[in-house]
Amino acid sequence: MIIGPKEVEYVGKLAQLAITEDEKQLFIGQLNSILEFVEQLNRLDTSNVEPTAHVVLAADQSAALRPDEPIMTFTQEQSLANGPETGAGHFKVPKVISDR
């Protein structure tokens, strides 16, 4: 077993996912069978292979960039339009600093 309940909990924390006990049980089996399947990559010797950084451009080519000029995108009102809780021109979130 590559990944157990502890690892799933740890990774869940990294990924900011609350995972229920039921989900944990379901995922552990499925995740292990996928990871065991992935293990086959280790049969390949890749010690002299460069990792792919871009599929079309060669390593010495860079993407075409546009001039860095400011453009008008969205107004503050538009930017806030999808916010679940907004006020005074801001996105509201729960209190971050704890009380003494």
Partner: peptide, 30 residues
């Protein structure tokens, strides 16, 4: 989606990055 986020986070996490993600990007080159 959760399954993929968990797996994706796992293969990128400290201690597993080289074994999984970097390895896969090399195999991708092949």
């Amino acid at each position: 989606v959760k399954r993929r986020i968990i797996l994706g986070t796992f293969v990128l996490s400290s201690g597993y990055y080289d074994a999984y993600y970097l390895k896969a990007q090399k195999v991708r080159t092949l």
